[in-house]
């Protein structure tokens, strides 16, 4: 297995508050790494330092052979790291195609004038969604009319369509009902099969054990431990989250 992401000694200070003190871990191709930890443990801060939203106070992130540290969110994205935030950042009033292509829309020329190619974008969106096992009932309807799981799928489809090699998800199931949570877990399985590396943040123990190849527990800004799901259990993970050391 090849390592695609190397997180090395990340530290982040906000004023006097050290949100992340020392976090290191790797992510391999086609692997799902779960970041677990109590509220305020520093999970979101870590992934924001990967996606370029925050710059670390110390430490570095390597993606394949590139140093990510110092790059803007757009630059990180264009290298193939897609971050799906909890609010999804979809434009609810637009169809799945336009959401898939937002910022990189397809156009075609008619008599020298450029027009959006809505049909083509819709077709491609339907196709990518199909590869995720999701049928889009009406490709021209705004995504507001879709279920929470389907909307999550659009965000994931965006990652697949633009050939992300690493997908970061911050609590993707937090706002969803039980059937939709299952949908999202199935989507994560399909992403893994495509060889995409995944960093998943979750509070939900069953989800963590279902999705993870490795579980990294953060407590108060440091890595409290790293386990394979087969070598641990709920109790131990919770104990590590609460701050008991290895």
């Amino acid at each position: 297995m090849t390592t695609i992401l190397k997180v090395d000694g990340l530290k982040k200070r906000f004023g006097g508050n050290e949100a992340v003190s020392n976090v290191s871990f790797d992510v391999n191709e086609g692997e799902c790494v779960v970041l677990a930890g109590d509220n305020g443990a520093g999970k979101s801060t870590v992934i924001k330092m990967i996606s370029g939203v925050y710059q670390p106070t110390a430490g570095q992130v390597h993606f394949n052979d590139t140093v990510l540290t110092g790059k803007s969110p757009e630059a990180v994205r264009s290298l193939g790291i897609e971050t799906i935030y909890q609010d999804l950042a979809l434009a609810d009033n637009l169809d799945p195609g336009l959401n898939l292509y937002l910022g990189r829309e397809k156009t075609r020329r008619i008599l020298g004038i450029s027009f959006l190619d809505r049909k083509e974008m819709q077709r491609n969106a339907v196709e990518v969604m199909k590869s995720l096992g999701i049928v889009v009932p009406d490709p021209s309807a705004p995504v507001r009319e879709m279920s929470g799981g389907q909307r999550q799928a659009i965000a994931i489809a965006r990652a697949i369509h633009w050939q992300a090699k690493l997908v970061i998800m911050d609590e993707p199931t937090a706002a969803l009902g039980v059937p939709e949570q299952r949908e999202v877990m199935a989507l994560i399985e399909r992403l893994k099969k495509k060889g995409v590396g995944i960093i998943l943040i979750s509070h939900n123990l069953p989800d963590i054990f279902a999705a993870a190849d490795r579980i990294i527990v953060l407590a108060r800004g440091v890595v409290a431990g790293e386990r394979k799901p087969s070598e641990t259990n709920d109790e131990e993970i919770v104990r590590m989250m609460m701050g008991a050391t290895l």
Binding site: P73, Y85, D87, A89, L90, A91, D92, N93, L94, N99, L102, G103
Partner: peptide, 8 residues
């Protein structure tokens, strides 16, 4: 609809 969608 969402400023964040365009920004991101």
């Amino acid at each position: 609809a969402s400023r964040a969608s365009v920004e991101r």
